[in-house]
């Protein structure tokens, strides 16, 4: 039973210059206690998909097609007031830069308490206790003292822990994490991930993890969707997609990064570049948006967008000539 279902989601951006499609026909669902990774370069629509799920799209961007359902209830046409009850309660989100997403003029304890005041009936004393319990649960010692600290008094890792405590305050069904560790050191990243895994094991929260790091995907996620220029390029289980990527873009994303190799038999193969950059969305024609950067591209790729087709059970790819690997 999936907790969150995204069905044929389209997000359009309208401006005086015309309108462009930021997210084009994306579908996926996510089960409790599972982690779904959304992968792609910047400008591929990962964050827009996440913001659409939270109904926090920036001005000008709107959901034009598709349905998002949380435990069977549609979120797409929910009035803003009801959506506000859901955000921070059944669905919450953590962002990349914890410094800019915390309010600098309130203590971190106060900011966690705000979530509880909005979504629960706890009294003052109960809230104070709950805030300290939450701060302890994300691995911060001396919770009493830390809750009165302001964001600038804390390190990056500590701030991200506070963001997580805040996001988990009401035990959400779904946690969306948009590049939660990109701004942090690897040692702190490892701490944050082990924290997220522990919390998930305790609360069965479904996690949507947005990242560009295939190492993070392998470490954290069960399923993966790869997005390119707003469209779904490939999806499947992490194990299958990482070991047998079918889409040339997925393969490119795996091969373009010098992955750390440990031990004595290190292969010295060079990293393969994906030539060029993600095309501007307004220039995309009828064909596959990746065609201009793809080594396998041929005439039909320029002519029409390939449908999502099954490579093997629960592994799908949108490519005319994917290679069976």
């Amino acid at each position: 039973m999936s907790v969150l279902k995204v069905d044929h989601l389209c997000v359009d951006y309208r401006s005086r210059a015309g309108h462009i499609r930021l997210v084009d026909d994306i579908s996926f669902d996510i089960q409790p206690n599972k982690t779904l990774a959304i992968v792609g370069e910047s400008g591929c629509g990962k964050s827009m998909t996440a913001l659409a799920m939270m109904r926090l799209l920036p001005d000008g961007a709107t959901i034009t097609k598709g349905v998002i359902t949380l435990e069977g209830d549609s979120l797409t046409d929910l009035p803003e007031a009801q959506m506000r009850d859901i955000r921070g309660a059944s669905m919450s989100m953590i962002f990349q830069e914890p410094m800019t997403s915390l309010n600098p003029v309130f203590s971190v304890g106060e900011q966690i308490a705000e979530v509880l005041r909005l979504h629960t009936d706890l009294d003052k004393q109960q809230i104070r206790e709950k805030v300290q319990a939450l701060i302890r649960s994300v691995g911060i010692s001396d919770a009493g003292q830390r809750s009165s600290a302001y964001p600038h008094e804390l390190s990056g890792g500590m701030r991200q822990r506070i963001m997580i405590a805040m996001a988990l305050a009401c035990s959400p069904k779904v946690l969306i994490a948009d590049e939660p560790t990109t701004a942090l050191d690897v040692t702190v990243q490892a701490q944050i991930f082990s924290l997220l895994r522990d919390l998930q094991a305790r609360t069965s929260t479904a996690i949507v993890l947005i990242t560009h790091d295939m190492g993070v995907v392998a470490e954290m996620a069960d399923d993966i969707i790869v997005m390119y220029a707003g469209r779904l390029a490939e999806r499947g289980s992490v194990e299958t997609v990482l070991s047998r990527p079918a889409h040339p873009y997925t393969r490119g994303l795996i091969d373009c990064v010098p992955h750390l190799q440990l031990g004595s038999n290190i292969s010295h193969k060079s990293v393969t570049e994906i030539p060029g950059v993600v095309p501007a969305l307004e220039t995309i024609g009828a064909g596959c948006p990746f065609a201009s950067r793809c080594g396998l591209s041929e005439e039909r790729c320029e002519a029409a967008m390939p449908e999502l087709s099954e490579v093997r059970p629960s592994h799908q790819v949108a490519c005319w000539n994917y290679q069976e690997t």
Partner: peptide
């Protein structure tokens, strides 16, 4: 050792050793 072992590996199961999670900062 701790720094190297903290890097997530893209190919599951090929890591030479398990991650040592350093405490604190």
């Amino acid at each position: 050792l701790s720094l190297l072992s903290a890097v997530p590996s893209a190919s599951p199961g090929t890591k030479a050793w398990k991650a040592i999670t350093l405490k604190g900062e």
